[in-house]
Design a protein around this nucleic acid. Structure first.
Lengths: 253, 253
DNA sequence: AGGCCAAGGATTGTATACGATCGAAATTGC
DNA sequence: GCAATTTCGATCGTATACAATCCTTGGCCT
């Protein structure tokens, strides 16, 4: 039971400021979800990998049932795919699919920002959350913490969606964001961290100015830029090879 | 009537002609989901109603586990809400929330149509599915089958999303569509069925013409029109009252 | 009478057990 | 030796059993 399953994921990061007390009745399903997501983000599970319920269950020291439910949830979010009696696997990450995710994310965030502008949430206290997120981004960048940077980035965009005031949209955005954690786990190379921060700054400035067209362009560019230059197939192959190697080494001892 | 969860609609549409018998090994979870959604669509469960796992399980003659998983899936799609140890309830349907759902749906479909145009899927054989859906709409309208009409409507729009070729978007669209089944279940008043069909025709024509702006407007208008004139709070109250009445009557016997 | 506390039932969350299905190794026949 | 078949292990899907939690109802005290 002493397994480290309290890896803070994107979700907890947002909550533990505001709702500090509500952490207790967390169900095992939620914990399992977080753990799995964390494992994915850390590259412990690679795209296309088979996911066996029992393995995760024993790793977390719990039964299969919560794990099953967690996996089904992740399936409904598109992070894993399953075939009856054949098992689940982490969704294979192709360049094509990645583009699809990005396109949807752009569509959602664009819509959210439009509505945020319409509600006049682009000035004053409404921007505090965004500014805090940027501060966090800087902190993580100076620390060189890739995972933290990604979390802060997610926080920024989550905040942006929240300003739109459409909870349904936010829910869907979360599902999309989860899928991007796969990429997060792979692209920890973390080059040009400060470039990313500058992009956020520009985005915020355009938002404050209220120029819808420019914001759209900024979002599009920014979201795409995160992934444009990376060769995913290669990255996956490399990671897989490294893992194989490690497995063999521990085998040989 | 593939409700949700898997794969692009383009594929399923392709498949369910060919693989006619493969429907057998459907898992109980899927069946449970379908049953629950049907119950919602038929107004057997009203917004805000408590949903007890055991009830559904016995009603379907299965165990609680598949029901649980089905409910969790529906939760992740936003159709039901849950609180640990307190149970699930059908999401309360407020006018506000309804608007949110519609807005997201418009955003998604708009994006999908844009991409469909960019891919040149607005002519020739690509339109067959849409035409078939319209035929089905007419059939259901002449039959006066409200549920069937809604299903056919969903099929039309699903087809439209599929033409965009973005499977991620399709998945999300399914989640949204499920939520609208609540409204379907309530608005069986079914007035102006033929008006709805005409709207679909106009939409198809605009799509074939390739006029992006007009399509956007048509989608927006069409999706909104489905729900604009209805007083949901009243409808729900009426339904609930009617059910209470029925319950008392069977009680008194 | 009214409010507080306790015990009970009801319902959810989790674990264990068992049957169903798939994939591959082993076996048999040619 | 190779292919088809059978068997077997692994894993998933489902059922049943148990524990944790909540909510209500009844009793008790003030």
């Amino acid at each position: 039971m002493s397994v480290a399953l309290d890896e803070s994921s994107a979700f907890t990061a947002e909550l533990d400021d505001a709702e500090w007390r509500k952490v207790r009745p967390r169900t095992l399903v939620a914990q399992a979800m977080e753990s799995i997501i964390a494992a994915v983000a850390r590259g412990l599970i690679l795209p296309g990998d088979r996911i066996v319920e029992q393995e995760i269950a024993t790793a977390l020291g719990i039964s299969r049932v919560p794990v099953r439910e967690a996996l089904r949830l992740l399936e409904s979010q598109g992070l894993v795919v399953s075939e009856p009696y054949k098992g689940m696997r982490l969704v294979p990450l192709t360049r094509e699919r990645l583009d699809e995710v990005i396109e949807v994310r752009v569509a959602l965030e664009t819509s959210a920002v439009r509505r945020a502008l319409a509600r006049g949430r682009n000035r004053g206290a409404a921007l505090d959350g965004l500014r805090r997120a940027i501060d966090e981004l800087e902190l993580m960048a100076t620390r060189g913490d890739g995972y933290g940077l990604a979390t802060a980035d997610a926080r920024f965009h989550r905040e942006l969606c929240g300003l739109g005031g459409n909870r349904v949209l936010c829910t869907l955005w979360e599902a999309i964001a989860v899928q991007l954690t796969i990429i997060v786990g792979l692209s920890t190379l973390g080059k040009s961290m400060h470039g990313i921060i500058d992009e956020h700054r520009r985005l915020l400035a355009a938002f404050e100015r209220g120029d819808a067209a420019e914001i759209d362009a900024a979002i599009e560019e920014h979201v795409r830029a995160q992934t444009a230059a990376v060769d995913f197939e290669g990255l996956i192959a490399e990671r897989r090879a490294r893992r194989e190697q490690r497995a063999e080494r521990s085998q040989g001892r």
